[in-house]
Nucleic acid binder design. Structure first.
Lengths: 143, 143
DNA sequence: TTCTTACATAGTAATCTTTATAAATAGTGT
DNA sequence: ACACTATTTATAAAGATTACTATGTAAGAA
């Protein structure tokens, strides 16, 4: 999976640097949906001199190659997800945790939207919001 | 519709001020999906001394009461939509225009997601992205 | 109507995220 | 090893949103 990603980058003429490798590794191994700052902090120990701009630059490169997907939730900062298979996200309103879940891809809504609006459709985005199990139990304890 | 909104605000103990009224009117009458700055600029003539903070404050109040929905697209700034009936949005990648379209509400995906993840589901969000008709014709002309 | 009080506004500063810039550094093919 | 160019670093800058405080004002009570 990581090898495949590196190969895909090489094919796009992208050079491999230690920082780039580390950011990519982090995205592949961590199944969280980190912000740019999460990544920056996580790699600070290994790369004390790394700039935040480097994180953003690489995330942009990964996005252009199609390895990574950027998402804006209600929060202030964007979250980045290494693209594996098609899945949707459910997000906890309380703690912000993001969990993947599988559901048949909604191709139909794209064609309907296209017919109704005249748009040329490229993609869609779907997210479910609610409260995760652990936050549910905390809330019931408090009450 | 505006009356109903004002009443709803009063019931929540929210005072009516000229600025608040104007922001609300703008959201109800304009069917665009304005940013906070759009609203600020649109009302600058009537309220030369109005602060941007006032726009943000009121949008937050409207959100808390449930009159307004905040959305983050790829852009830098959030967009605000007066909640009327259930509909979805299709967004132009080129010019950023947002158009409503009707589609049966996807209740099923909420229950599926809840079963798979154990979340207590509150709502979902779905957007379709593509190119609007006018941007399509411009692109074909250029080429 | 006048008074009172808490909420709202204006104005500004501050914060946070992201992008831009320029000089130094380092990959990669030859 | 060399040369070319992408990349990194460091910092500044931009842009959106929030925090803060003094002033003003809506709305109910007297």
């Amino acid at each position: 999976m990581l090898d495949h990603a590196v190969q895909s980058l090489r094919e796009h003429g992208v050079r491999m640097t230690p920082q780039r490798q580390a950011i990519l590794e982090y995205l592949v191994t961590e199944h969280s949906h980190p912000t740019a700052d999460d990544i920056y902090k996580a790699l600070a120990a290994r790369f004390p001199n790394m700039s935040v701009a480097t994180v953003y630059n690489n995330l942009r490169v990964f996005k252009e190659v199609g390895l990574v997907q950027e998402m804006n939730y209600g929060d202030a900062s964007s979250r980045f997800d290494f693209v594996t298979s098609k899945h949707y996200h459910i997000i906890c309103d309380t703690c912000g945790k993001v969990v993947d879940f599988n559901y048949p891809v909604l191709d139909e809504i794209e064609s309907v939207a296209s017919q109704l609006t005249g748009f040329k459709v490229d993609r869609h985005r779907l997210e479910v919001y609610g409260t995760c199990p652990s936050c549910q139990s905390e809330q019931s304890q408090t009450h």
